[in-house]
Amino acid sequence: MNLYSIVITTFDQRFEPFLVPLISSIKALRPQIEIIVMVNGPAKGSFNGTYRSKLLEFLAGQANCYPTLFPNFQALAKLWNRGALTATNHRILILNDDLAINFIESSNFFDHLESELGNQPHAFRINGSFSHFVASKEELIKVGFFDERLLGIGEEDGDFVWRYHETYGREIPSINIPGIGNIQSKVADEGFTKGIGHYSKFNRDFIKTQKYQEVLIGGFKGMFDKRSKKRLSDEKQYPYEDFYLDNIHKL
């Protein structure tokens, strides 16, 4: 079996309707798989103490589930980065919490996924979406991780796709894998200003007016509306993570 970990991002309003059934279905199919649960806090107000208690009680009953709780709201980019860094395996399946995994008699989502992991050595999206995608620590380090200046939710995937192409000269492919469905819940934290749908206006403005500019010739489109070039440089995030991976075995 190809060794990998799962990272799930979530927050209080999606606990019972989405997170509980998702983790339960994962554990029914892969009881011992490592799951890193990144729990976001509220953009306004205090962390819900009742939710915290119920969440920890639920996760304590699941093998190899490790939560990280943030008392206040953090960027989705940060949740993805920290989740990947926390995982003990180099390859990571990153999931939204509003997904449903179906049971198929002859085979299931994980059977197909693990087959593709053997065929696909690099990052890939699943069924055309970043609601479920596979990343590796090596590529995250090389590209520079997801940009944590995107303080809200949205655009972190398009920005990473652009920088991935800049780094490797190739696009992140999409692989069709049956057995998983995107519910696409519109339930979102009400404490931050929305732009398009339930995504952050701040993130959209940062991408459109500060980090990139649209061009007619050259550049790269990726997931953006038009071909674009970067005009704001990236700082190196987590600069010692490659040192950690190269030397931890010496400890």
Rank of each mutant, 00 (worst) to 15 (best):
K27F: 04
V39N: 04
V39P: 03
K44L: 08
V20T: 05
F58H: 06
I35M: 14
G41V: 09
G45I: 05
F47L: 14
G41M: 09
L19G: 01
P42N: 11
L76R: 00
N48F: 11
A84E: 08
P31A: 10
I35V: 15
T86M: 07
D12Q: 12
W80I: 12
W80N: 03
T50W: 06
Q74T: 08
I35Q: 14
P67A: 04
R82W: 05
T86R: 06
N72W: 03
L55Q: 06
K54D: 13
Q62V: 15
P71C: 08
R82A: 13
M1D: 06
A60S: 12
A77M: 04
P42L: 04
G41I: 09
R14K: 15
V37T: 15
I6Y: 08
P42D: 11
N72P: 00
E34H: 05
M1W: 06
N40V: 01
S24F: 00
R30H: 06
V7F: 03
F18D: 15
F47C: 10
A63D: 07
G41L: 04
A63C: 04
T68G: 02
I36V: 13
L69W: 04
N48M: 06
F70L: 00
A60V: 06
Y4N: 07
Q74W: 00
L56I: 07
P17V: 06
A63W: 00
L22P: 12
F73Q: 02
F15M: 08
K44T: 14
K27I: 07
R82M: 12
I26G: 10
L3F: 03
A87K: 09
A60P: 01
A63N: 03
F47Q: 06
R30V: 09
K78V: 09
P21D: 03
V20Q: 04
L29R: 12
